[in-house]
């Protein structure tokens, strides 16, 4: 009996079989962005009036996180051509070749559908509708349209990152209210100075990729001026929960102090010399902006929970 080995390796057959691991797929979800989404959505959900079963609340946060991750995967699918030429993004799973573009697209679409349906069926359809709109806004409006078209890309596109606390609020209440709009505005106004600070010291990357970020199109001086304008708006908007009466004076004082810190860092960027290659003030603002967002949402969360405990005690 003759034994003929007709088995050939995938490489010999010219077939591409994936070597992608679950870790690569997890990276498609942009876990660092997802951590911010989870945190801000949690704040919106906990701060909202009314009660939600803890397990249903957990499912809501999970669905929002997965939906945000799905939009990240769709972003990486579409942007692979520009990610590959930018140092910050070249090692992402699609541009590095660990995951095929089609796999990233399918992964993003499946997770988008599952996250929206799960949120709708288990929590409520207002929150699910907002999540679906957020995914659409980030993947289609920002990634496919605004990002390569206008230097105002992240001003408008920033709305996508600002929706999570509003979705969290809607998960708990089934509606959108002034409080959730203010939480939205805090992130919406925070996004441009955060990304423009990054774009200042990564402008070479964006230029090589042909992405019209503000420093490449309008110049560094105009970018520094715009950063200052947005940063000056952040302090009053950050304190708005206190001004509108749904946060304490202690929160208000902390929010103003954090906002003043933001403005001070923005001022240092504004007065940065044109020939400053190290761009330490821009890097410092970028780092501070991350701390700011976590701090102000944490302060709002603590203030709300403390207010409820005091209210129960009284």
């Amino acid at each position: 009996m003759a034994i003929v080995d007709n088995h050939i390796s995938a490489t010999e057959a010219g077939v591409r079989l994936s070597e992608a691991t679950p870790r690569d797929y997890f990276a498609l979800l942009k876990p660092r962005v997802m951590s911010l989404v989870i945190f801000t959505a949690l704040v919106g959900l906990v701060a909202a009036p009314g009660t939600l079963n803890p397990f249903i609340a957990l499912v809501a946060i999970l669905a929002i996180a997965v939906g945000a991750g799905a939009s990240g995967a769709l972003n990486m699918w579409y942007d692979a051509d520009i990610d590959v030429v930018m140092s910050r993004t070249a090692d992402r799973p699609v541009p590095s070749g660990r995951i095929a573009a089609g796999e990233a697209l399918a992964f993003g679409l499946v997770l988008s559908a599952f996250s929206v349906m799960t949120l709708g069926v288990i929590v409520n359809w207002v929150a699910a509708g907002l999540l679906a709109f957020t995914i659409f806004f980030y993947a289609v409006v920002y990634t496919m349209w605004l990002k390569r078209w206008t230097p105002q890309n992240i001003v408008i596109g920033g709305a996508a990152g600002a929706f999570p606390p509003m979705i969290g609020w809607a998960a708990a209440t089934g509606s959108v209210s002034l409080e959730s709009v203010i939480l939205f505005l805090i992130i919406f106004l925070w996004t441009p100075p955060h990304f423009w600070a990054l774009a200042l010291f990564k402008s070479g990357d964006y230029e090589r990729a042909g992405v019209p970020m503000l420093p490449n199109v309008a110049g560094a001086a105009a970018t520094r001026r715009q950063i200052l304008v947005y940063s000056l708006l952040i302090a009053p908007v950050g304190a708005a929960p206190w001004a509108f009466g749904f946060a304490s004076a202690a929160y208000g004082v902390l929010a103003v102090a954090l906002g003043a810190g933001f403005a001070w860092h923005a001022w240092r960027v504004f007065t940065m010399a044109d020939d400053d290659r190290a761009m330490k003030p821009a890097k410092a603002l970028f780092a501070y902006s991350i701390v700011y967002l976590f701090a102000i949402f944490a302060a709002f969360l603590i203030d709300t929970v403390a207010g409820r405990i005091v209210g129960l005690g009284g």
Partner: peptide
């Protein structure tokens, strides 16, 4: 004698597929 043709996964491909299957 077997004349069925088939692809043989490399160890890296097999390991990755197993990990993906477990994750799913």
């Amino acid at each position: 004698m077997s004349d069925k043709k088939g692809l043989v996964l490399s160890p890296a491909q097999a390991k990755a597929r197993r990990a993906r299957s477990i994750a799913i």
